[in-house]
Each structure stands twice: as structure tokens, then as C-alpha cells.
């Protein structure tokens, strides 16, 4: 029997609960006869994937990117633009999106990572806003009205189709689990240790013999590419993409999810995404000006538990001891 006195066990229980909830949401939605919830949870998991990728650089690497939604936009727009030209093959779209995400992250990363602190935050945001305004200015692809995607990506098999909400849901679910597993492997690898150590003491790492810039850049690119996948999935849920997906407030929401769930914790981004959405729904029901409550609430969370929900789990232990 699992003892809840142990932090690791509490984390496991939370992880099982959250993943179990995601795994069973469509079943529950069908039982409740509320198919609307399937797409809602699919959207939530897409946020979670984006947050998992952001957690790699923000949580583990200490790189506070305020422009991470850019990669959601790259993924979604790649699908949108390919669909616009009647190229609906999923694999072609995916490879193109990953390559685009890779190139942009490589170029932007090598610019941003020359700065630190507030400058890093500002320049990641500025570069993303630049692409945001670019997407607004291209009339061919709908400018600020967005681009309607008439045909979802074709998986090239009759067995699964993105048009089936249940299929779509579980593809997203599996991608989320894969991203979670990947980031788990990554942070425990040699590379992961270098990234985490460079966050806490960069000078030390340089003196040990690590050219930290390269490692941070590689991490930045990995996170960007992973987030691009979330964008590709998003386009297939919404059948629509607009510049809004990469507005800076979206990047801010991603940061909130990571911080809320607990930076540098495995399950943090997913719980963060879930709780973020629940809270915004809850506050939105109370008042139209829900951001007014939500903002201070988030500040309160950061002040009371800097390590978010994951930090609360750890807090309970010391109270018990």
C-alpha cells in the first residue's frame, strides 16, 4: 500500500489521478452525454503538451521564455497552409512543421540566449510578436481573421482518423504521454543534468568544461520542436488557426500553467494546465471580469507556494513531520 507520507508517493498518486482523468475523460463524456467535453479535454492536453515543452526550458533550464506560443503557431499554421494548398498528408505536414519549428527555434534561440534575465524575457516576447504581426499581415492566409482548415490531416489509414473525435482524442493523449516520457528521460540524462546544473550555477558549469550556450540552445530547440507538435494537433482539433494562437498573452498563460503546476516537476505542466483551465472556468462563471480575480490569485499562489501544486505536495510532508 502506498504511504502518502512520502513525497514521491504523493507525486505518483497525483500523476495517476491526472493521467487517469485524461485517459477516461471521453468515457465519462459519453456516459454524461456531453460530447463537448471530449474536445475540451483534447484542447487541455494540447496545452499540457505545450506546457511540458515549456517546462523543459523554463522549469529545468531556468530560461523564462515569454514567446513559447510561437511554436504552437508554427505547428498550427503549417497544417493550415498545407491544407490550404490541398496537401493533407499528416506525415508531410508533421515533418514540415517540425523542420520549421526546428529552424525558427535554432535562429531565435541563438539570438535570445545571448541575453539573460529580463532581457531574455523581453526578446523572446518581441520575436514572437514579430511573427504574430507577420501572420496578421499575410492576407492570403486569412490575416487576423484566421485560416479555416477544411480537411483535417490524413493519417493514411482507415483505422484511425482525425475526424473521429475519439480517435483524435487518444492520438493527442498518446502524444502527451510520449512527451512526458521523453522529458523524463531527458532530464535524467547527461544532457538533463547539464541543463539543470547550468540553471543553478552557470559559471561553475563553464569552469567544469561545459560550453553552456550550446547545451541551452539545444534544449531551447528541443522545447520548440515539441511545442510545434502541440500546434499541429491544435489545428486538427479546431480546424482553424488564427494569429491569436501565438499572441503574447498565450505565452503568458503557458508560463502560468507551468508555474501553477510546479516548475521543474514532471507532472507539473499537466496538473497546471488542468487547474488553470478549471480555475478560469470557475472564475468566469462568477464574473465577466474574471481576469481581475484570476491575476491576483496567481500572484498569491506564487507567493505562497513558489513551486506551485507540486510544492504544496512537499509542504504537506513538513507539516506532518
Amino acid at each position: 500500500m502506498l504511504s502518502l507520507d512520502n513525497l514521491q508517493n504523493r507525486r505518483k498518486v497525483l500523476g495517476v489521478l491526472v493521467i487517469g482523468l485524461c485517459a477516461l475523460a471521453p468515457v465519462a463524456a459519453n456516459l454524461l452525454d456531453e460530447p463537448y467535453y471530449i474536445n475540451l479535454f483534447a484542447r487541455l492536453m494540447i496545452w499540457a503538451i505545450a506546457a511540458i515543452s515549456l517546462n523543459l526550458i523554463l522549469g529545468y533550464g531556468g530560461m523564462i521564455s515569454f514567446g513559447h506560443s510561437l511554436y504552437l503557431g508554427i505547428g498550427a499554421y503549417t497544417v493550415g497552409i498545407f491544407a490550404y494548398y490541398d496537401i493533407n498528408n499528416f506525415y508531410i505536414q508533421l515533418v514540415a512543421a517540425l523542420m520549421a519549428g526546428f529552424c525558427v527555434a535554432l535562429v531565435f534561440g541563438s539570438i535570445c540566449l545571448r541575453t539573460r534575465g529580463v532581457y531574455f524575457i523581453m526578446i523572446t516576447m518581441a520575436l514572437t510578436q514579430m511573427i504574430y504581426f507577420l501572420s496578421i499581415s499575410i492576407e492570403e492566409f486569412g490575416s487576423d481573421d484566421g485560416l479555416i482548415i477544411y480537411v483535417r490531416s490524413e493519417l493514411g489509414t482507415d483505422l484511425i482518423s482525425f475526424d473521429n473525435p475519439i480517435h483524435r482524442y487518444y492520438v493527442i493523449f498518446l502524444v502527451m504521454i510520449a512527451c512526458l516520457y521523453f522529458s523524463h528521460r531527458l532530464i535524467h540524462s547527461r544532457f538533463g543534468y547539464v541543463i539543470r546544473a547550468a540553471k543553478s550555477n552557470e559559471t561553475r558549469m563553464e569552469v567544469l568544461g561545459y560550453p553552456t550556450f550550446r547545451y541551452r540552445l539545444a534544449c531551447f530547440v528541443i522545447a520548440g520542436v515539441m511545442c510545434t507538435v502541440a500546434g499541429v494537433l491544435s489545428a486538427n482539433v479546431e480546424k482553424f488557426v488564427s494569429p491569436d494562437i501565438m499572441h503574447w498573452t498565450r505565452s503568458g498563460e503557458l508560463i502560468f500553467m507551468v508555474v501553477l503546476g510546479g516548475m521543474a516537476s514532471m507532472m507539473g505542466p499537466i496538473t497546471g494546465a488542468l487547474v488553470f483551465w478549471l480555475l478560469s472556468e470557475f472564475f468566469a462563471r462568477i464574473t465577466e471580469h474574471w481576469h481581475l480575480i484570476f491575476g491576483p490569485f496567481l500572484i498569491l499562489v506564487v507567493l505562497l507556494s513558489p513551486r506551485g501544486i507540486d510544492g504544496l505536495l512537499a509542504l504537506k510532508r513538513s507539516a506532518n513531520d
Binding site: 528521460r185 535524467h188 540524462s189 547527461r190 544532457f191 538533463g192 543534468y193 568544461g209 561545459y210 547545451y215
Partner: peptide, 15 residues
């Protein structure tokens, strides 16, 4: 690790 070749291995647990 710094002196045991590069550290771009992102898969194998360092432990």
C-alpha cells in the same frame, strides 16, 4: 562527465 566526451545524450540515464 564534463571530461568524458560530450553530454548531448538525451536518452540514457546518467545514473
Amino acid at each position: 562527465q564534463a571530461h568524458f566526451g560530450h553530454s548531448f545524450n538525451i536518452w540514457k540515464p546518467v545514473a
